[in-house]
Simulated assay, not measured.
Amino acid sequence: MKQTQKEQYKQTALITGAANGIGYELAYIFAQNGYNLVLVDRLDRKLQEIAVRFQDKFDIFVKTIVKDLSISTAPNEIFLELQQENIQVDVLVNNAGFGTYGLFNETNLKDELEMLQVNLVCLTHLTKLFLKDMVKQGAGKILNVASAAAFQPGPLMAVYFATKAYVLSFSEALANELEGTGVTVTVLCPGTTHSAFHERTGMADSKLMQGKRIMDAQTVANIGYQALMKGKTIVIPGLINKMLAKSIRFIPRNLVTKIVRSMQENK
C-alpha cells in the first residue's frame, strides 16, 4: 500500500518486536499520536492485523516488514527496503529482544547466539544505518529498550543480563556523542513486566515473578514514550526499580550476584 499525500507529511516511527508486549504498546502510542509506522516482527499474520486496525482507527500509514532479526542480513534488508520506497525513519525503536533461562553450562548455545544477534548486534546495526540520515537532517529520536537487568550481573540469565548491560552502556555513550546534533537517544530500563517474555524463558515460576506487583506493558511503554519525547537519556519505570538500580553501586558485587541468583531461582 502506498502512502497518500497527507500521510507523507507525517513523521515515521520504526519499531522492532512490534507484535506483542512493550513493542505493540509503543506502536499503539505512536499511532495514537499521529505517526506513520514501520512495524517489524516475525509474526506475519499478527502484524497484518495490527496494520489494518491502526490504519482504520488512526488514519495513518502502516508498513509491515516480516523479518527474523536473529539473521545477520536482516538489518540491511530492512534499511534497503525502506530506501527503495523512500520511507524516512524519524524515530527508531529498538525493542526486539528475548532471553534464555538456566545455568550457562546447560543452556542451548544456538539460542544464546541468536539472542546476542537480536538483543545486541541487530540493535547496533539498525542504529548505525538509520542514524546517519538523522544526523544529516539535524533531527531524530532513538529509543533502545534495555532492562533493569542492565545494572547488575544475572546468574541463571547470564547472557541476557550482559546483553542489556551493553544496550545501556551503548545508549549512554551515543547520547553523549550526539549532543548538539538534534538527535537524542533514550534507553528504557523496565523491571519485571507482564508479557509473554517470562513464559518463553521458563521463568514464570521464579521467585522474581511471585508475590509482587508487576507493571503492565502499556504503562512501561507510556513512560518510555514520554521520556523519549522529552529527550531523556535513561528512564527506569517504577520507584522501586529506580531505587534498586541506584543502590546496587553501594553493595559488594559478589553480594549483588548472590541476591540476583536467589531472586531468579524457581520456588
Rank of each mutant, 00 (worst) to 15 (best):
M1K: 05
Q5G: 01
Q8C: 13
K10S: 11
T12M: 08
I15P: 00
G17C: 02
A19G: 09
A19M: 07
N20K: 14
G21Q: 07
G23S: 00
E25A: 02
Y28D: 02
F30V: 09
A31M: 10
A31K: 02
Q32T: 10
Q32R: 15
V38P: 05
L39D: 00
V40P: 03
D41F: 04
R42L: 14
A51H: 06
Q55I: 00
K57A: 14
D59Y: 00
T64Y: 12
T64A: 13
D68G: 06
D68P: 05
L69A: 05
A74H: 06
N76G: 08
N76T: 12
Q84N: 15
Q84L: 12
E85Q: 14
I87D: 02
V89D: 12
V93I: 13
N94K: 00
N95F: 01
G97S: 13
N105L: 13
N105T: 15
N108T: 14
D111S: 15
L113C: 14
L120W: 08
L123V: 11
H125P: 06
L126G: 07
L131V: 03
G138H: 07
G140H: 07
A146E: 02
A148W: 01
A148Q: 11
G154C: 02
A158R: 09
T163N: 07
K164T: 10
A165W: 07
Y166C: 03
L168Q: 04
S169E: 08
S169T: 14
L178Y: 09
T186G: 04
C189G: 09
P190Q: 06
T193Y: 01
F197P: 01
E199R: 13
R200P: 00
R200D: 10
T201L: 03
M203E: 05
L208S: 09
L208H: 10
Q210V: 01
K212S: 06
D216V: 03
V220M: 06
N222R: 07
G224E: 01
G231F: 07
V235Q: 09
I236T: 03
P237C: 04
I240H: 02
M243D: 08
F250L: 08
I251S: 13
N254I: 11
I259L: 15
R261I: 01
R261P: 01
S262G: 12
Q264M: 14
N266V: 07
